[in-house]
Amino acid sequence: MDKGVIVTNRGGISGRRWTEVPIEATIRVLGFSTIGFVLLIFLFLLREGLPIFYEVPTGNLFGTRWYPTFELFGTLPLLLGSILVTVTAILIALPLGVATAVFVRELAPDWVREILKPMIEVLAGIPSVVLGFFGMHFVAPLIRNIFGAPTGLTVFTGALILAYMALPTIISVAEDALDTVPKSYRDAGLAMGATQWQTIWKVVVPAARSGILMAVMLGMGRAIGETMAVMMVTGNAARLPLTFDSLFRPARTMTATIAAEMGEVAQGSTHYHALFGIGIILFVLTFLINLTAASAIFRKQRRGGLR
């Protein structure tokens, strides 16, 4: 105990030195300008994209056919294409990612962990065009041979590649979540006579669930915005993926559409506005996903967090 020392914490502005003033001002300007840039981009997106909503009747815009040459701007196949590819990718990546995180954090001996963690980070650094290339030449032929899909460029192929891309995010965020589960929970489980396995699945993983949900959301955000690899392996047919075999048929995502067609449209044309319109839809979608992730974190904090 340090007796007799009285510390008055006035906090905030009154306690700082004059040299800190310009530094703080600079940081503040930088911080606010980031927000400004995001706003500007959003405004630009709105300016270029909103016209489509009155240039083309709503029935057409949310119709089932996307043939810009014939003035058909049905975004439904693209929207559903994106969602199907993303959801399938997450369904593949979630169990794999959580299992890997559990292995790395809970079961692996130290030296295995030391090798695995950097490897997972390297995985995150592979450029998506390389993965797309790999998908086209190795995964697609496999899919063709196994499932008999004509070209092998299918929703499933895209989902596999996307799952692979989302994995590092899911693993590392889920691992951090497991890491915040206090040792006292594990001790309690083991001392009750639960096996290590039971302790992990009935105590540790449930205690980390909000973090794992966040991992899924972040992985999803990464997957839905991904363009290059998806464009290379999903076949890009703007087909409404509503039949049962859709998983093994080509599809086209929103991102691939924008990337493929933006180069050939006349600026200011209806087609041009339509592509930005898709951009708006994509933006709103990612925003909603991030919002869900953020509210998961918020709920966790309000509960007093994990001790």
């Binding site: 006292s184 929970y185 309690a188 083991l190 001392a191 006579g193 205690a207």
Partner: peptide
């Protein structure tokens, strides 16, 4: 450990 139970220093109920 089923026969020998344990109560810890800090209360550690599961977050359930």
């Amino acid at each position: 450990r089923q026969r020998v139970g344990m109560v810890f220093q800090r209360p550690n109920p599961f977050p359930q």
